[in-house]
Amino acid sequence: MSFNLHSKDIIIAVKNGNHDAYSHLYRTYYDKLCKYIYSLTLDYKQAEDVVQDTLIDIWVKRDKLNINSSLNNYLYRSVYNKFINLSKKNIRKQLLLNELHMEAIVELEGLGEDRKEARLIAIEKIIEQLPPKRKEIFILSKLKNYKYKEIAVMRNVSVSTVESQIRKAMITIRKEMLLLILTGMTIMVFMLIP
């Protein structure tokens, strides 16, 4: 099938699930869109991720495609919006990590060496008790510093699954540590009662 990029043929074909039309769209626009996003990020890997995610979204959500402008304008606007959303998400994530890091430093500075060591051992035990998949993803991210997308590829899961598993691991660790702290405080209170 021949596609006329100046008409709605390719859009209609993609909406109808035509793999050839989607492949044509991908081949025609991939490099151009990567160069455009690279001009914003100066990181070719990130540019590729943004473009790939956008083009995958188009295929996955093809039945909901509603393009009121030219295909060219739609694609450039889509990758730009994906880039902006990713940037906002990364900024929020970095701010949260910075906040958690500062809280941990302040908390550890207030502890004696014995208590710091006990706290670290307790955290290690909690991590060891996480479900195997969650533990592995958490260790890859927080201890081995792999990016979410890298972990997703390595473990053959989606990035959202990686995010979810790390979030659940953090909730478990915080909850268990809070219980340990509260239990320790309760024991100290009972020791003070004559």
Rank of each mutant, 00 (worst) to 15 (best):
H19A: 13
P131R: 00
V159G: 07
R62D: 08
K32T: 05
A118K: 06
G112R: 05
L180M: 14
A47Y: 05
C34D: 03
Q52M: 05
D57V: 02
D43P: 05
L25N: 02
L55W: 04
L178P: 00
W59R: 02
M170R: 12
R174P: 00
F138H: 04
E124C: 03
D49W: 08
G110N: 09
K116V: 15
L130V: 02
E109C: 10
Y38E: 03
R27I: 10
L55G: 01
M191Q: 14
V106K: 15
A21V: 04
E163M: 13
I187G: 03
T54P: 05
K144S: 12
K88A: 12
V159S: 13
E109H: 08
K133A: 05
S69M: 12
T41S: 04
Q129H: 05
L140I: 00
E99H: 14
K168V: 03
V189S: 09
R167D: 02
L55V: 02
T161M: 12
Q129C: 02
G112Q: 07
R115F: 07
I105V: 15
L179F: 03
K82Y: 07
L86N: 13
V189K: 14
M154K: 12
E176S: 14
R77S: 12
S164T: 09
I193P: 04
V162E: 05
I139H: 01
I11A: 00
R174N: 14
Y29S: 03
M154F: 10
E103L: 12
S78Y: 04
S78H: 05
I84Y: 08
K8D: 15
L178A: 13
M102C: 07
D114T: 04
D57T: 11
S2Q: 14
L71V: 05
L75P: 00
V153R: 12
L25C: 09
L108H: 03
P131M: 01
H6N: 15
L108S: 14
R174S: 14
D49V: 03
D63A: 14
E176N: 13
L5I: 10
E109G: 06
K32Q: 12
L40T: 00
L71M: 11
K116L: 09
L192N: 13
E103H: 11
V162R: 08
S39G: 10
I84W: 06
R155G: 01
V60N: 08
V51A: 04
M154P: 04
S23G: 09
R174I: 10
L179T: 11
Y148D: 15
K88V: 11
M177Q: 11
V51P: 02
A47K: 00
V51E: 01
R155Q: 15
M154W: 06
P132S: 04
D43C: 08
S39M: 05
D114C: 01
R115D: 15
N68C: 08
K8F: 12
L120D: 01
I37F: 01
N81M: 13
F3R: 06
K147A: 11
I67W: 03
I126L: 04
K133S: 03
R92K: 14
K32A: 11
S141W: 02
N81I: 09
M185Y: 13
Y146R: 09
E163D: 09
T28W: 02
E103M: 10
V106A: 11
E124D: 06
A122F: 05
Y44F: 13
Y36R: 03
I56W: 07
I121E: 14
I121G: 00
K135N: 03
V14A: 04
L111W: 03
I151F: 00
S87N: 08
A122Y: 02
E136A: 02
A169K: 04
S87Y: 11
